[in-house]
């Protein structure tokens, strides 16, 4: 049995939607971070699937760039979260409201 392209795209779309909802609804910055990674990985899955079914290597190549960028983003993001935690002792988004007052 072979899995069709549509199945891959469906899974990728679902993962992306779950990630997007997580970013919008969750309050803990670390969970927000996981949701962002989920979105990027959904994109990676779709890219690899398209690349395989369209018969070109561009998509596979693009995935490496996305993984690298995601790693850089996580490194900086965790640094900011740790620095903020030292000042405020919280990682919950709804308590980080010094600016909107």
């Amino acid at each position: 049995m072979t899995v069709g392209l549509n199945a891959f795209i469906l899974v990728a779309g679902l993962l992306f939607a779950i990630g997007l909802l997580g970013v919008i609804l969750r309050k803990n910055t670390l969970v927000l971070y996981m949701s962002l990674e989920l979105m990027l990985n959904a994109v990676n899955l779709a890219l690899v699937a398209f690349s395989r079914y369209n018969g070109s290597m561009d998509g596979n190549l693009f995935v490496f760039f996305i993984i690298t960028v995601a790693a850089a983003e996580v490194a900086i993001g965790l640094a900011i979260i740790v620095a903020l935690f030292r000042l405020r002792q919280t990682v919950m988004v709804d308590q980080l409201t010094a600016l909107s007052r």
Binding site: V23, T29, L32, L36, E73, G77, I80, L84, A98
Partner: peptide
Amino acid sequence: LEAGLKYLILGAMSSA
């Protein structure tokens, strides 16, 4: 730092 965190989360989301 708070501005950085907000920019980071929304920026990463828009990139995705």
